[in-house]
Structures are given as C-alpha cells and as structure tokens.
Amino acid sequence: MTDYDVLRVFCGPNGGHGNALGVVRDGSVLPGRSDRQALAAELGFSETVFVDDPERGAIDIYTPTLRLPFAGHPCVGTAWLLDVPELRTPAGVVGARLDGEFSWIEARAEWAPPRTLRRHATPAEVDALDVPPPGEWIYAWAWEDEAAGRIRARAFPGRGDGIDEDEATGAAAILLTEQLGRALNITQGKGSQILTAPQPHGWVEIGGRVFLERQALTAPRGRQA
C-alpha cells in the first residue's frame, strides 16, 4: 500500500472542476521507474507525481503510459502542496510562487511535449467537438474575447490510455501563450481556469487554484484506487 494525495489543479472561480493529480510525497517507497509507471497506470490520473526530495522540490512525473520530463498541471499542483520556491524536474528547474488563491510556476515552452494547437472560429465549435480517435495530441481553442485575452479550450491527449480528454493542461497552455505572445485567461474542459503570462527570455508563467481533494492509499493490485 502506498500513501498518496489527490489534488485538483486549475480549479474554477467557485472551486469546482480542475484536473485531478496524484502525488506520492515519499517517492522512496517506489524508487524504480517500472514500479512508478505501474502505479501511475493503476491510479489512472492524467499524471502522477513522485516526490524524491521535498526540500529541494525534486519530482518525477508519469502519465498512465509514459514518463514526462515536465508537465504543467503536475508542477503547479506539487509546488502548492510542497510550498517550495522551485521544483527540480528532468527538463530543468521550475520557479514557483504562491499569490493569494493562485499557485504559479515559471517554465520554458521548449520543455513542453509537442502539441497540435488547433484554432476554431467560435467557442461553440470547441464545445461541440467529439473526442477524436487516438493519434495526435490536440489542443482545440477559440477566442471568447480576444481583446481581453479570454480563451475557450479543450484538450484531447490521443494516447489511447483511457484519458480521452484532459480537464486542464498546463503544458499546452504554455505553448499557446508562447505562440500568441500575450497573457491568457483560459477556460478549459467543464470549467477549469488557467492563467498565463509570457515572461522575458523565453519563460512563461502559468497559474491556477489548487485544492486537496483527499489523501488515500493505493488499492490492491487489479483494483482502481
């Protein structure tokens, strides 16, 4: 049995929605990559984080099928949980800060995995999209209010791992912010909120609300936690 926390990251203004994240605070209980990958698959979250050094902010991130050098919503959530000034990921050092109800990180767009950023004419078009077949990782978006930087978005990982749609995805929001070159207020999924802002020298800041959903133990093998 393994202790882990379940967070919701990028919650809406009323505290609802957000993308679920599993965090194993004591990564030493599962030091091997194969064991971590198996647990991430068992838990079934879009990402699960293993904390290898809470004081230094050293973390290791997994989807149900692969290890990631960096991911946005896991970093935002884990930075909030550990309350540290930075996180150490395989991609690089991620700056972190808390500002009122928002947890912020600062990262580089080149750390984000490739995404297909697909613009649509209206938010209604984005809302009407069906989940595409496995293949491309698609971030579908449209302007809600271009002057105000407000965007409607949905994310389709296309990995075939049971995560047909991500409720809130930081890495894709970082890529979109770099492409558009401006601060964004993104409503994604069923009502999650992501805030971003480009920073000097190729950095992008991204933030959102984080809530601790529950603390739990892994279920016996073969059962969902």
Rank of each mutant, 00 (worst) to 15 (best):
S103R: 01
R214W: 00
D166K: 01
A79C: 05
V204A: 03
I163V: 15
P123R: 01
A124S: 13
D52K: 12
A168I: 08
R150N: 05
L217R: 14
I194S: 06
T2E: 09
G57E: 09
D3S: 14
S28V: 00
L87K: 01
A41W: 12
M1A: 14
P198R: 10
I138G: 05
R119I: 02
E47R: 14
R36W: 09
F70C: 00
D5V: 09
A91Y: 10
V84I: 10
P132D: 06
R154V: 04
Q224N: 10
R67C: 03
T177H: 09
I105G: 06
Q37N: 04
D83L: 04
G18D: 08
A173K: 08
F156W: 03
D164P: 13
L176Q: 04
V94M: 11
L117E: 06
Q215A: 12
A96E: 00
P85M: 04
I174P: 02
A20D: 12
D127V: 14
D26P: 04
G191H: 01
V51A: 10
I163F: 07
D83S: 12
A41F: 07
R97S: 12
A147G: 10
E47V: 04
N14F: 01
T122C: 04
W80R: 09
I59Q: 03
Q224T: 15
G12F: 00
V126W: 02
E136Q: 15
E42F: 11
G100V: 00
A153Y: 06
A168Y: 07
G72T: 12
T169M: 11
D60E: 12
V29D: 01
T218H: 02
A96T: 07
Q188K: 10
C75T: 13
G207F: 09
I206C: 01
R108D: 03
G162M: 08
R8D: 15
G18N: 05
I61Y: 09
A121C: 08
V49E: 09
C75K: 02
P157Y: 06
P90L: 05
W104F: 13
F70I: 02
R8L: 14
F10P: 11
I163M: 09
S34T: 15
P157H: 06
